[in-house]
């Protein structure tokens, strides 16, 4: 493998996951929460691709593509929810969405 070895890629992957997790925990706008979720998914995707390269099998890349499809599905539903909430004239703030609370 030319250039950096596997641990360098893994460090970037871990940092991306942590940045995304901080975004999900700290921000209150559902749009930014969704964007941060995408960063977390991509951090895990990078680890999958790296290990796929390390072991010389394409299984990890197949898994990464499946993760991409699931992320697209999640964005589809998430953005639909955000638009539905905005149409009801509610404030876009995840802390205020408590209607489902038992």
């Amino acid at each position: 493998m030319m250039g950096p070895s596997v641990p360098f890629y893994l460090a970037i992957s871990g940092c991306l996951f942590g940045i995304g997790a901080l975004g999900v925990l700290l921000r209150r706008s559902p749009l930014i929460v969704l964007l941060s979720l995408e960063i977390m998914l991509n951090g895990s995707n990078l680890a999958l691709v790296t290990f796929s390269r390390h072991f010389g099998t394409v299984d990890g890349q197949v898994f990464a593509i499946s993760v991409m499809a699931v992320a697209a599905a999640e964005v589809c539903v998430g953005l639909g929810l955000i638009v539905a909430i905005a149409r009801k004239k509610l404030t876009l703030d995840v802390d205020l969405f408590s209607e489902l609370r038992g």
Partner: peptide, 21 residues
């Protein structure tokens, strides 16, 4: 979470220094 992820990924990472061709 970040520290845990990094430790889990990089623990004894010298095993990962030789990738398959």
């Amino acid at each position: 979470l970040l520290a845990e992820t990094l430790v889990a990924l990089l623990w004894k990472s010298s095993r990962l220094s030789h990738s398959a061709a």
